Simulated scan of single mutants.
Amino acid sequence: MEDFHVHSNYSDGEFLEGMVRAAEAAGLEGIGFADHCNVAPRDRMEWVRSVYGFNLDITYDRRRRAIEHVRAETSIDVYDAVEMDYDPRDEAEIREFLAEAEFDYAVGSVHEVAGANVQVSSQFTDRPEAERDRIVEEYFDRLVSLIESELFDIAAHVDLVERTKPLRGRATENHYERVAHALAESQTVPEINAGRALTDDGIVHPAETFLETLRDHDIAVTVGTDSHAPDEIGGRADFLEAFFDDWGLEPVDPPALE
């Protein structure tokens, strides 16, 4: 099994070499570094890049040299990828950057809707029920746009709103059907993401009902532990291997690697 979604010190993860060693120890055949990147020109996103240091658009060439170094020291495959925040207003900038950088593959994700990070519960706790429903609706609107853009090989954690208690349980079968139909017409594949699978909440993306919908539409899936530290990789990889066995799923590679 390979893991196509981990992070390194080039965004919000730990040192790249340590992540590779942990993947080796976990028995993985490959590891893909998909560090966060945002190329939106708006002031707020420039502020986010400054505060959190998500500057892979500037540092990807330096990271590429580091990846080439660890490739020479390991027997497993090491992929040079990216996870990009998607906003339909930024499609031209994203397309230009991906063409310039020529990553092995690209992961797309939706983290922000209506100026709020959908993973931050405090931003939604005091909002009316109808507004929370609207946020979830906008999240899935944006996810469908991400898929239809054909910019990305992988759609990451396709029901991210489930991590956030004020938004959890508000997605509907109609949302899942819309995403499944978009994926059926696209080269983009969703991942099974274990980033919260071993926490108290035990959240796997996509949720069981969503995954059933994807399976009903014969949508292929790929693998992402979403690990940010070496000690996360082994446990999450073991969980995903068992998860795929339990569901009778055969993960696929990102389309760019096929």
Rank of each mutant, 00 (worst) to 15 (best):
V179R: 03
E2M: 02
C37W: 00
D200F: 03
D104G: 07
D201K: 07
T213I: 07
A197V: 11
D245L: 06
N55T: 12
T188V: 14
R49W: 05
D57W: 15
D104M: 03
V82E: 01
V136T: 10
E148F: 02
R163V: 12
E177H: 05
E191T: 01
A207C: 13
A256W: 11
T125E: 14
F97H: 13
G18T: 06
R168H: 15
L98E: 04
G53R: 08
A194V: 09
A256C: 13
N117T: 07
E212N: 11
G27I: 03
I31N: 04
A40V: 12
L16G: 00
R236Q: 14
V204G: 05
D141H: 12
A194E: 02
S11V: 13
F244A: 04
F244S: 02
T74L: 03
S122Y: 13
Q119K: 11
R178W: 06
M19I: 14
P166S: 07
V48F: 14
D153S: 11
E46W: 01
T164C: 15
A81L: 01
V120P: 00
A171H: 04
D200H: 02
A101V: 09
W247T: 00
L151E: 09
V82A: 00
G32N: 13
V82G: 04
F140I: 06
V161K: 07
V48R: 07
S149L: 08
F97Y: 13
R236K: 15
T125L: 09
L56C: 03
L198I: 08
Y139L: 05
H205A: 08
L183Q: 09
